[in-house]
Nucleic acid binder design. Structure first.
Lengths: 105, 105
DNA sequence: CCGTTGAATCGTCCATGCTTGAAACGTAGG
DNA sequence: CCTACGTTTCAAGCATGGACGATTCAACGG
């Protein structure tokens, strides 16, 4: 029960996952990626022309988002399409402090 | 127009403030503080007994939250009460990527 | 095959933010 | 006043995450 006192069990359970999720979003590049993907799936090359950062750097941030289970990647020939995971928006909303519903890990 | 290409003006406008807000929340201590304050105002000593971190450290994180305009502090005698700013929840919800409404700075 | 393109991975460097300990500040009480 | 308490501020140390360059991988086209 990492941070909160033993009395706050339920709160502590939400905390770890919620913070991890928010940390994934709280970066300029990753926020931009998610905001673009909110409009629908995009291939990496498409993201790259809208977010002016080095290709390898974008790849790094996509990996972080993948490991947070916020986006999914599917190869389409030479390209790779990224899309928001279906419940991404819900999980993020639930991760905000004070949210009534728990974070689904 | 920091990150997003010139074509994404509106998105870029939201980005900076949104990320700043999310960065303030994406920390275990600050998340715990906000989650507790969501139930109502609390004095620092009250927060301190529910979040087992050093006093000065808690004070540091409270300052970050103050500077993000998420919480307000008012002195009551020897103690200082912290409370969520009224529109804190709305501002946070609006800061999530894909949110339809812009972030009010 | 071989070159090219889209994308991911690796190794390294650097800055930023969290943590810690000590000191300072404001308030109340004896 | 002088002390005690609650809280903040200051001056470090330290770790971690993000940036960069070079390399690797996978798919397609000639």
């Amino acid at each position: 029960m990492s941070l909160l006192g033993a009395a706050d069990g339920a709160r502590a359970d939400r905390a770890a996952g919620a913070v991890a999720l928010l940390q994934a979003v709280a970066d300029p590049v990753r926020w931009a990626v998610l905001d673009i993907l909110a409009d629908g799936p995009r291939c990496v090359c498409d993201l790259q022309e809208r977010i002016p950062v080095a290709g390898n750097l974008l790849s790094y941030h996509l990996k972080v988002l993948r490991e947070a289970d916020l986006v999914s990647a599917t190869r389409r020939g030479r390209w790779i399409d990224y899309a928001l995971v279906e419940d991404a928006a819900d999980r993020l909303a639930a991760a905000l402090p004070g949210a009534r519903r728990p974070v689904t890990t």
